[in-house]
Each structure stands twice: as C-alpha cells, then as structure tokens.
Simulated scan of single mutants.
Amino acid sequence: MEIRHISEPIHIKGFSVQTNNEAEFSQHGKIPGLWQRFDNTISVDYVSGERVYGVYFNYESDHAGNFSVLAGYDGKKVLENVIVESITIPSGKYLVFTKQGEMPQIAIDAWTDVWKYFTQENAEYERTFTVDFEHYVNGNHIDVYIAIK
C-alpha cells in the first residue's frame, strides 16, 4: 500500500445502488447485479484510454452503515437512450491497496487488505468515509483508493 494524492477531481458516469456490508456478505448483495448491469449496458473504450471505476460514497456512518456504490467509467461520450448518474471523485489524500491477478478475486483480496489494515489498533491512517474508489487499471490490476485524514 502507498499514499497517493489525487490533484484533479475525476468525473465518473454509471449506475448506482445503496447497500451495506451486512447485505453484501449475505445472499442479498446488490453489487454483483450492479456490475452485471454496467457490463451489459456500457461499452468502455479501453483502447482510447477509458477506465472503469467502482465508487463508494454517501456513507451513513462507517463500515457498518449504509453506503452507495456507483459502477462507472471516465469516458466522455454521450450514451444514447441510457440514463446514467454522475459522481466526482474529489482531489485529496488516499491510501491505495493494489492487487494483480484474476478478477473478481483480486477485488475481494484488495478489500480484505483494506479491512485488515483499518481494523488494527495501531493503524497509522484513519478513514474519512467520504469517497473511496476502485480503479480498474486493466483486466487483472485493481487499485483501491481509501480516503484518509
């Protein structure tokens, strides 16, 4: 893991759901269906540099409360007949957890590292629970950015 500073906001378009970790760890998780909807609806132009993001925001409290997740991309094109939502990832200080390998296991492993780090008593950094995000660098590389104080 490493500290990265995002100097310019990142604008993301896609679809969102509201959920919580309790639901996601049960048979009632909404995130898999969200990603399926995104993959079936939006064509991402990776060759031209577009990238996919999973953005976590509207935290009710901490990891135990409700939050929203947006599956999206950073493309500029207008999608015909598709209503998308937008969110801006703010500039700021983030602790980044990186994994490479097979999807979806690397996403699961990256979030496991996040939870392990922030549940230890002597964690050097503290989460802000503002906006966190997954950046899918390519099909087998994910960076999970956690906003910190």
Results as ranks from 00 to 15, higher is better:
3 I>Y: 08
3 I>W: 08
4 R>L: 14
5 H>F: 13
10 I>C: 03
11 H>Y: 11
15 F>A: 08
16 S>M: 03
16 S>D: 07
16 S>R: 01
22 E>P: 00
24 E>F: 01
24 E>G: 05
26 S>P: 05
28 H>A: 13
29 G>K: 04
32 P>I: 05
34 L>H: 01
34 L>N: 04
37 R>N: 09
37 R>G: 06
40 N>E: 14
42 I>H: 01
46 Y>R: 15
52 V>I: 14
53 Y>K: 00
54 G>N: 02
54 G>T: 01
55 V>I: 07
56 Y>D: 04
58 N>A: 12
59 Y>H: 03
59 Y>D: 03
62 D>M: 06
66 N>I: 06
69 V>Y: 00
71 A>G: 04
72 G>Y: 01
72 G>E: 04
73 Y>S: 02
73 Y>Q: 03
75 G>T: 07
79 L>R: 12
79 L>N: 12
86 S>N: 12
91 S>A: 14
92 G>P: 01
100 Q>A: 15
101 G>L: 06
109 D>T: 05
111 W>C: 05
119 T>R: 10
124 E>T: 12
126 E>R: 14
129 F>R: 00
129 F>M: 02
129 F>V: 01
131 V>I: 14
133 F>Q: 03
134 E>T: 02
135 H>V: 04
141 H>L: 11
143 D>L: 05
145 Y>E: 05
